[in-house]
Design a protein around this nucleic acid. Structure first.
Lengths: 254, 254
DNA sequence: TTCGACTAAATGTCCGTACATTTAAGCTAG
DNA sequence: CTAGCTTAAATGTACGGACATTTAGTCGAA
């Protein structure tokens, strides 16, 4: 009993200390096999079951563990199977939702070095990068010009994929197990250059979204992406409420 | 004791029944004066304090009530004092954050009828609307062209305000008590017309964001808004993570 | 009248116990 | 060897008590 002890003299509630302890031990990779049950923690820390349950309740509320009746608590599925949200996801999902066939023309797909992009990824200037440039079509008409750089150390397995008909994120998880969990992006309104207009086959009087995205997986940079989307075929739509905040939604029109 | 009873035979946990009871009574407007304390509920329903606390814990998690030590629980402040998020809020907050003086030139401010806008607000075509058109400046340079329609029945008290230096949402809550709690918006990338370019005093080679917003307060439409923002002075930026979803952030540059 | 200390009341923490319900594993019968 | 039952283990629910800590009000003294 009580192989580990908590500070019982005023350093915050016992259940809080226990919660912090468990988070610390989790981050240290300690419970990969199985998470201890309530009674095990009661024995180990010498506190009542009530206190243990209060600590575990918090961990569940934070989505760290999941528990069910009759089974030991388990560590929550990695972060969650959440979709990579954002303007880009919104874009391609909306095409899908509209029922339009979606494919790409691969303009370039190789390994190269780019000092500027490497710096944006937080890597050495000479780091080899996998570069993928695609013209994305919805139906028969060009929709977006998409350029992605990924560290070659992670993305080499992707070189065998055919990106005319599959998505980057899908191949990424399928071939390397990497799943994006964090990132940021900025969206500009721009007028396409003549060259870009030619590639996108769009009239001279349409504007475009210029989207830059930097994504991470478990703290490591995974992609730097630049996408140019025709402004006459796409719009961002969002809903907001005091309760659930600001959320992007599917555009109604293309 | 036990002036009200719960079903003790298998109709779900007691604390769940109690929680539902309390929500029902709340919706019936029963606890406007003060919310009953734990011991009062123990007496009233004839259950243990543990069960009452479990029920109240859920109500707190749902944001229905707030509780502190030594004080009786209270009904949570209406929905929450959350800021009206979205691209527009992001825009003007970013100007503020950059330390630039922000003011407007009022181009029009009157009451009129507009069948198209009224329909978008879900109102009769002939409904009188308060119309406010402003050119918004950040520093000395034009930043956005902002046009708002509000139902006159709500917005008449605003007609006395000077919108050269104050915000619409601020005046709205100050003069009418109305606070936006829900809405949606869409963001397009467009090329400004010659007239718009002249008003915004921007070069011919810049694009713009066209933002439409429809906002509600407690289910009633409050504003329909169209804003045209110079693309060379503003960008949307956002962060996303598996944990907290997609959130707009302050642009780094103007 | 005002400021302070004291008191009552309320929620937060923590312990103990018992039983119910569900899951998973083991075991037996066919 | 499989199907179904039995049993052990684990969490969920519910009860009880005790003390700590904070809040809000009361009372008294300067």
């Amino acid at each position: 009993m009580a192989s580990r002890t908590l500070d019982r003299a005023g350093s915050g509630p016992l259940w809080e200390q226990l919660r912090n302890e468990l988070v610390t031990r989790l981050d240290a990779g300690e419970f990969t096999e199985q998470f201890p049950g309530e009674m095990a923690l009661v024995e180990e820390y010498g506190v009542s079951r009530h206190t243990v349950r209060q600590a575990l309740r918090q961990l569940r509320a934070d989505g760290v563990i999941v528990a069910e009746r009759g089974r030991q608590p388990r560590i929550a599925p990695p972060p969650e199977i959440e979709q990579p949200m954002g303007a880009l996801y919104s874009l391609f999902a909306s095409v899908e939702a509209a029922g339009l066939p979606q494919h790409s023309i691969v303009r370039a797909f190789d390994t190269r070095a780019d000092a500027l992009v490497a710096e944006r990824l937080g890597l050495e200037s000479s780091t080899p990068l996998v570069y993928l440039e695609r013209l994305r079509l919805a139906g028969d008409d060009p929709l977006a010009l998409d350029r992605v750089w990924l560290p070659a150390s992670l993305a080499v397995p992707l070189l065998k994929a055919d990106f005319a008909h599959t998505s980057l994120y899908g191949e990424l998880t399928a071939r390397t197990g990497i799943r994006l969990d964090r990132g940021h992006e900025d969206v500009h309104a721009v007028i396409p250059t003549a060259a870009e207009r030619a590639q996108l086959q769009c009239p001279h009087d349409v504007a475009a979204f210029s989207i830059n995205r930097l994504s991470f997986s478990q703290g490591s940079p995974v992609e730097w992406r630049h996408t140019l989307v025709r402004g006459d075929r796409f719009a961002l739509t969002a809903e907001f409420s005091a309760r659930s905040g600001y959320q992007l939604t599917q555009p109604l029109t293309l």
